[in-house]
């Protein structure tokens, strides 16, 4: 993993390597180098298997983290390529031509996070949420509880008591 990192580090200006396990590492790459890095990994370094491709919402930092997790079957190693993009008007280059299956991931990311992948097939076609008009629901600022309270009725007659408050009310109501 370290040798691989050393080979690629300068060419693709990789960030620090996080060695999570001997067989799993994560590196950060800039948007300009992403595609070249993925191609290199896939075609030269044997990382042919796109395990998953997803996003993490770092709302507080105003950024989305895109994680491309690649697997080298021969060496049984995984490399997670991390890329940070601004949340505002989030958009990223498509990789469906490298892995056709990325089309599905990109459709989902568009729908669930609102990250656009121009040129990706059917990227704006409904995936799971037919007729959804609210915020992309996997964004951190979409409040599922608020949504469910607004959408569904609570069962009537339920009431709970906090032990501490209940005991105060019963045993020392004046705080004496």
């Amino acid at each position: 993993m370290r040798a691989l990192y050393d080979r690629l580090k300068d060419r693709f200006q990789l960030g620090e390597l996080t060695r999570q396990r001997p067989d799993l590492g994560f590196v950060t790459v800039g948007r300009d180098h992403l595609r070249a890095l993925l191609v290199e990994l896939k075609d030269v370094e044997g990382f042919t298997h796109l395990v998953l491709f997803t996003a993490v919402d770092w709302l507080e930092d105003g950024q989305f983290q895109l994680t491309y997790l690649l697997n080298n079957r021969a060496t049984a190693q995984d490399l997670g390529v991390r890329l940070m993009i601004p949340r505002e008007g989030a958009s990223m280059d498509t990789i469906h031509d490298l892995w056709p299956t990325a089309e599905t991931y990109q459709r989902e990311l568009y729908e669930m996070f609102g990250i656009d992948f121009p040129g990706s097939p059917r990227v704006d076609e409904d995936f799971i949420l037919e007729g959804w008009t609210d915020l992309p629901p996997n964004r951190r600022d979409f409040d599922t509880k608020e949504y469910s309270e607004a959408t569904f009725a609570e069962r009537a007659g339920r009431e709970s008591h906090d032990p501490r408050d209940h005991m105060k009310q019963k045993l020392y109501p004046d705080g004496e």
């Binding site: 339920r158 009431e159 709970s160 008591h161 906090d162 032990p163 209940h166 045993l171």
Partner: peptide
């Protein structure tokens, strides 16, 4: 839910 059953 925690409901009152006896005196605290």
């Amino acid at each position: 839910d925690m409901v009152p059953v006896s005196d605290p």
